[in-house]
Amino acid sequence: MSAAPTRAEICVVAIAECFRGDGEILANPIGTIPMIGGRLARASFEPDLLMTDGEALLIANDGAFAWPEGRVVESYNPYRAMFDVVWSGRRHVIMGASQIDRFGNQNFAAIGSDYARPKAQLLGFRGAPGNTVNDATSYWVPRHSPRVFVDRVDVVTGVGWDRAMKAGPAATRFFDLRRVVTDLAVLDWETPDRSMRLRSVHPGVTVEQVREATGFELVVPEGVPESRSPTPEELRLIRDVIDPEGRREEEVPG
């Protein structure tokens, strides 16, 4: 019945896999495909996850963006309570990154060498410093390029492995930096010196393509596996239940 999975749907599954084993915590994926991936994890292999409506409610619905049947509200979670969640550690956040380096230091505050007068002012620090030293953290990069995967970030908003270890035990105690999912691949830091490793490449992508799109030397093990494809049931959930409007295809065109 179903057409072959698109690249966007491979990304959705890769995001869902980030939450495997997380249990009864807040899955807090930020971005279109992350929202779909988090919903997919909960609707399939990680049913105890909690998720927000994007604002102040925790809702049980499988739909990622629209709830024509009405929202099923599990709890009230205004920003004040969100920081209680963040600092108690019962959360896995997936953030974006304008720049990220080999140890996972992330920047989305400003681009340029002079912070007092940046070439481009971006979001600011948002919650990145607090998220990364308190919660499991992963990243979503919809366009894998050397402009994002850089040798050195201009500003460290989210903390990477090297900086956390240098900052000492108070910084590493709850530090748990996990994965990066991009439109080309999945990366992690499961290496002796915590430098970024190519974990899997999406179907149709070569290792060489990922290397060329990365501005630093990646750790590439022998025989990098392919990112897994959605099962027929996962495809049905994505297409019919979670994202029937196909917003995933706008973020990562086929």
């Binding site: 620090f125 410093p129 030293v133 903390v159 900086r163 900052a167 108070a170 709850f174």
Partner: peptide, 13 residues
């Protein structure tokens, strides 16, 4: 007191 900021560029900036 908080952990927030440790390891990031916030204390520098």
């Amino acid at each position: 007191p908080t952990r927030v900021g440790l390891g990031s560029d916030l204390p520098r900036l």
